[in-house]
Nucleic acid binder design. Structure first.
Lengths: 252, 252
DNA sequence: CGTCGACTTGACTAAAATCAAACCCGGTGG
DNA sequence: CCACCGGGTTTGATTTTAGTCAAGTCGACG
């Protein structure tokens, strides 16, 4: 299921926009440390579409950084239906949900072919304990990750379905921009309409209609999963966001 | 607005069910340390109904523990309407929202007469840096606080208004039980129907109807803000919660 | 070329929002 | 003491919105 990888070039390129880069570089968690032999708990991992990274109840061992691809985290209710809790794009963290209890309270699975970097939590805690300034930084990273559900709440509180979708798309765009290129205006969604619906608390059909509407209004151009933002200002407006507030908050 | 208090007896009684108790007791953050002279940034604080503890954009200085009373945290959208992000009951933390950015991203205000204990964040970080086990514990506390919005998400993802209300009430009950008495079955809500509506993403009237419905069905007894849970099992059922999962997660 | 899965679109239904009116209760002042 | 507020709350009637059910369409892949 999870296959170890050791491509140092890939790793190096991927480190620049990583959530933990600063910690890694300023500590012993250097590239060389990260890339360890597959035997000692592989550090670089690859998942295929649909593969599970961790399940509900799994012990927290590593925190993962997404290098490429994307994951979703989900919880499944007793009655069987799945709630999508978050999406995790390149440069973002996965696995901190277990921080409180020591066990994962969600399931994480790959939406597409995905590369991950696994960082042992113990290593991070050790780093934090060594120096207050680093600990403050660590808390910052964790705090930011915690804010992810804050973003989700913000989306879910919107009454209008169209508004929810606009906020969502705007967020995704900002996150790709942050990781890749600040001018970016088109991207390919890694998740299905159904996943989006289960994240936004809407019916699949409502999401689809939302895409169509935004396209009809000339705000975006959609073709299946590929999206081009034509009028960012109008997308922001549809999302009821002020011009200043952008998507600094990661990992929604 | 915020008035310092130094009642050691009150403090002592209040410490038992506190979120940070373990950290306080195992470290220099003892009662004596907590109760400092009002001059050096008062540690015990009192708020009246409607008073603001911190505003959006305020620098993070202290993390607060609620001793008595209750607060709500809110964000206000550009178009003016207020989203209630969370309620903070006795024993729970407020203020960790600023952990990521260093500035508060929500506003906190008292719903009723409220007593708080202010703990300087620096002190906590220092504690964590001193020893890995304590740091792990600190992360746990913070992680748990981060889970608060996880609970909120869970509520907001419910499609049926009645289900949302049931989950909410069940959560409040569990939290009062945790803090006060595990057998508790009645309590007084510190917040208005409107606050509840803004937390649940519903109209005020829908919330009110939800209360009436639950009462008609004999699940609870309501009179204004005082609620008695008559049939917990049926409340759980209405909330679609399994018998095992309770409200361990604090601060929603 | 046919099939399957993902997506779109339409018609209808169910649910919650909105609008509007009472109600209840604690507080005030005549 | 009681009439009169006023806020918060409940309840009712109507409208709007999104959910549901049901066809279709599109596109990738065998």
């Amino acid at each position: 299921m999870a296959e170890p990888v050791t491509d140092l070039g890939l790793l190096r390129r991927a480190c620049a926009p990583c959530s933990l880069r600063q910690l890694c570089q300023r500590t012993s968690l250097s590239e060389q440390v990260l890339v360890r032999s597959a035997g000692r708990g592989s550090q670089l991992t690859r998942l295929s579409r649909g593969d599970t990274l961790f399940r509900l109840g799994d012990r927290l061992g590593d925190v993962f950084v997404v290098r490429a691809g994307a994951l979703k985290t989900t919880v499944t209710l007793r009655d069987g239906d799945e709630h999508v809790i978050g999406f995790h794009l390149p440069g973002e963290l996965v696995g901190l949900d277990a921080l409180a209890s020591g066990e994962h309270c969600v399931e994480a699975s790959a939406l597409v072919e995905t590369h991950l970097c696994a960082v042992p939590l113990n290593a991070l805690v050790a780093v934090g304990s060594s120096e207050p300034s680093l600990n403050r930084e660590l808390l910052k990273v964790f705090g930011a990750a915690a804010m992810e559900s804050h973003v989700h709440v913000d989306v879910l509180m919107r009454r209008q379905a169209g508004e929810r979708l606009a906020v969502f798309l705007h967020g995704i765009l900002e996150r790709y921009r942050h990781h890749r290129n600040e001018q970016l205006s088109d991207f390919t969604l890694p998740m299905s309409r159904e996943d989006i619906a289960r994240y936004l608390g809407l019916a699949l059909e409502t999401v689809s209609r939302g895409f169509s509407r935004l396209q009809d209004e000339g705000v975006i151009k959609v073709s299946g999963r590929s999206v081009t933002v034509i009028a960012l200002d109008r997308l922001r407006h549809a999302a009821q966001l002020s011009d200043t507030e952008s998507g600094e908050t990661a990992t929604a």
